[in-house]
């Protein structure tokens, strides 16, 4: 390789390194101050679904859901037993009124419980999920301030950020720090 080619190659390498570094600080010139504005973006979905606080919330909801479904199942099993007794009594002749009354009451109780549980679960899900989102939002604000960013954008399915170079994608570092703080690994 000639000396000129070697120099060109080195220059090209230097230029690419400088471009990458330059991309970290996007130079949008502010009208008043003329200072460079630091921009970055995070991939919101990654941040949300890989955040340990959100994973814990989902795990907790799953546990609750299993507990509650187990409770309903137990009551349904009991009802099934009552219904079998009714069928047996019907086969033998007359069904005692008390059996019918108890089975009807059990059925209504199960239906009421299902409705109550569905409402409670929805409320719990909304609050725990919202809580995890609040934690993320707070953390990103604090992180942005601490790291000197002027603006941190979030990609979302509605397409508010359609493209960004990897150099200003801070998702991984934010996620790492977010999970570190959450799990107390100081």
């Amino acid at each position: 390789m000639s000396a000129i080619k070697q120099k060109l190659l080195i220059a090209a390498c230097l230029a690419s390194v400088l471009c990458a570094a330059g991309a970290l600080t996007v130079s949008l010139t502010s009208g008043n101050t003329g200072s460079a504005t630091r921009l970055a973006f995070v991939r919101s979905n990654v941040l949300i679904y890989e955040y340990q606080g959100m994973k814990d919330a989902h795990a907790r909801l799953e546990t609750l859901s299993n507990e509650w479904l187990g409770e309903i199942k137990q009551k349904e099993e009991n009802l099934k037993g009552q219904q079998e007794l009714i069928h047996k009594a019907a086969d033998e002749g007359e069904v005692p009124q008390v059996l019918q009354r108890d089975a009807a009451a059990a059925y209504h109780e199960i239906e009421a419980l299902k409705s109550e549980i569905a409402g409670e679960f929805q409320e719990k899900e909304q609050k725990l999920t919202q809580g995890a989102l609040n934690q993320i939002n707070d953390f990103v604000q604090e992180y942005g301030r601490r790291e000197g960013y002027d603006l941190v954008l979030g990609t979302s399915n509605s397409g508010n950020v359609l493209y960004g170079v990897d150099a200003i994608d801070i998702t991984d570092e934010v996620l790492k720090e977010l999970n570190r703080v959450y799990t107390g690994n100081n």
């Binding site: 606080g53 814990d56 919330a57 907790r60 409320e123 719990k124 609050k127 725990l128 919202q130 809580g131 995890a132 989102l133 609040n134 934690q135 959450y182 799990t183 107390g184 690994n185």
Partner: peptide, 12 residues
């Protein structure tokens, strides 16, 4: 915390 919607907290 589902009372104040601040999420789950782990104090380690």
């Amino acid at each position: 915390d589902d009372l104040f919607a601040t999420g789950i907290h782990r104090f380690v």
